[in-house]
Design a protein around this nucleic acid. Structure first.
Length: 512
RNA sequence: GGCGCCGUACCCAAGUGGCUAAGGGAGCAGUCUGCAAAACUGCGAUUCAGCGGUUCGAACCCGCUCGGCGCCUCCA
């Protein structure tokens, strides 16, 4: 089935045909490492992680490059404010970034270049642009001359006249045109800098992505991605300087993800309405593993190009939805109830077997249908919400089959399917026991709150043995029809967020 | 001011010209259960912000109106 994706350059869905068959070269703008990353950054990383996973699922060999901007004004400001070397700022936040990505199950890209490791490539590229007379130096700064690139504005759908008319930038009279942008910035005496033909300085923001993508993927590559706020000026400028430099097409498909909003407004540092990933995990009532997967589910429950609004319900809703699937996985792991195997039920057992025959055939058709829906939805511009719907439909059908009785082999097959198709989404890879908190849990009933609520403290505990003991006591009471004691225990456990489920055979399973 | 996006049930969210408008959450009712939980079944938009138009046919196309948001400055 052919993959189609929305190309923001042409504003249309297009058939995806990579430059080299079976290979995809993809570059995504990463983060500037001057602070903890927030949900918006995470969304971008997650969207492209999912795209990468699906491309690999589809059989492509993917080279995925995602950069770190590790030198820039904000980093220097931060270092100055904290009175530490700027390199310490970048190291700290690169580490934090890895921690957050890991919690979200985001697979590291193939290559993670840093601007500071590519200064020579950047200088070479700028020198080439100066040589071609599309860039010029003024007092140690080098600017790209937008008038020299006739296609300028093509990606973002603007033209220079419009831009000038609405320009809010204060005009720097040293520039030939107000829209000219910096390739190289001269360093002030106290600022870090590298030697260059124009004196000591550092790269402008846009040039690093061009230099590093060309270096690692070649002049023309398949996919370039990032948040939709990067379309202008960042990506527009990348196109201009790259094409001017190589004389070749730059990225062939442009993919831009939508924002995460709070109260319908873009989450951003300047508005102050953001949640860092760290904060979300610290305040989550769920374990780290569960929180990570819930967050992932939540972010995938909206199409990547749409904005999505984060609220206090987002995580609990994702948890409830995932619970239904993990609950099924758990039931499919359990041995078939003994009452189905006892002699009294021999007649029923025979019937069960007959049911199983048709049940297993039916399962095969359900799997076919799921695979088809999965691929169709993902091939249609990565429609993850549709995929999740298909999972839930599949779940419902399997639940019905399970009630009729399924062989261990068939149950195993169904479980495998959930795992296999959850993988490209980064979902359903945990064991039900971990999911339902039998190993580690934080303090229950602390709802994730919007804002800086210090009351939500992490209380790590591993009280499985205690719970098991309570469950045993309760079942002894139940056996003696001492239901008041049984109910007392149930209520006590419920207060700790433990839910008991009695099986028909008298045993009890518990979960959080 | 320029360019652009969005408005689908109580909430989240697919669907963008033609079978009964997916799916999740919450809710109500039922089956099951000592009670519960889970699972299953049923109920819930004659309707897709509003109005007008195109069409045999529109939530989907066009126009206008109302409401929300984004980019044009650093931004995932």
């Amino acid at each position: 089935m052919p993959l189609t994706l929305y190309n923001s350059r042409t504003k249309k869905k297009e058939l995806f045909l990579p430059l080299t068959p079976n290979q995809v070269k993809m570059y995504v703008c990463g983060v500037t490492v001057y602070d903890d990353c927030h949900l918006g950054h995470a969304r971008s990383a997650l969207v492209f992680d999912t795209i990468r996973r699906y491309l690999e699922y589809s059989g492509y060999q993917v080279t995925y490059v995602r950069n770190f901007t590790d030198v820039d004004d904000k980093i220097l400001q931060r270092a100055h404010k904290e009175g530490i070397p700027w390199t310490q700022v970048t190291e700290k936040y690169i580490e934090a970034f890895y921690r957050d990505m890991g919690r979200l199950g985001i697979i590291p890209p193939t290559i993670e270049p840093r601007a500071t490791h590519h200064i020579q490539d950047i200088v070479d590229m700028i020198a080439g642009l100066v040589e071609k007379h599309v860039a010029y130096e003024v007092e140690g700064d080098v600017y790209f001359e937008v008038r020299k690139f006739s296609q300028y504005g093509q990606l973002s759908g603007r033209n220079l006249e419009e831009l000038l008319a609405g320009a809010r930038v204060e005009v720097d009279h040293r520039k030939k045109d107000p829209m000219d942008f910096a390739l190289w910035k001269s360093a002030k005496p106290d600022e870090p800098g590298w030697e260059s033909p124009w004196g000591k300085g550092r790269p402008g923001w846009h040039i690093e992505c061009s230099a590093m993508s060309i270096k690692h993927l070649g002049p023309t590559f398949d996919i370039h991605g990032g948040g939709k706020d990067l379309i202008f000026p960042h990506h527009e400028n990348e196109v201009a300087q790259s094409c001017a430099y190589t004389g070749k097409e730059f990225a062939r498909y442009w993919i831009h993800n939508g924002f995460v909003t709070i109260d319908q407004e873009k989450m951003s540092k300047s508005l102050g309405n953001f949640f860092t990933i760290r904060e979300i995990f610290e305040k989550s009532p769920y374990s780290e593993i569960v929180t990570g997967e819930c967050l992932r589910y939540y972010l995938l429950s909206t199409h990547y190009r749409s904005d999505l609004n984060f609220s206090e319900q987002s995580l609990p809703e994702a948890k409830a939805a995932l619970d239904t699937i993990y609950g099924l996985l758990q039931r499919m792991e359990e041995p078939r109830p003994f009452y189905l195997a006892s002699p009294i039920f021999l007649q029923e057992q025979l019937e069960e077997q007959l049911e199983e025959q048709s049940g297993e055939q039916y399962l095969a058709s359900l799997i076919d249908s799921l695979v088809q829906k999965f691929e169709q939805a993902m091939d249609d511009d990565f429609n993850t919400p549709k995929v999740l719907a298909a999972f839930h439909e599949f779940r419902g059908e399997i639940n019905k089959l399970l009630a009729k009785g399924l062989s261990d082999q068939t149950k195993g097959k169904a479980r495998e399917i959930f795992r296999k198709f959850g993988e490209p989404l980064g979902l359903l890879q945990n064991s039900p026991d971990v999911w339902f908190g039998k190993f580690k849990e934080k303090k229950p009933f602390e709802k994730i709150s919007l804002g800086f609520d210090e009351s939500a403290k992490i209380v790590p505990l591993d009280n499985s043995e205690l719970i098991e003991k309570q469950v045993r006591l309760r079942n002894e009471a139940r056996a003696q029809k001492d239901f008041s004691t049984a109910d007392t225990i149930r209520n006590e456990l419920a207060e700790q967020g433990i839910i008991l489920e009695d099986r028909p055979d008298g045993t009890t399973r518990w979960k959080r």
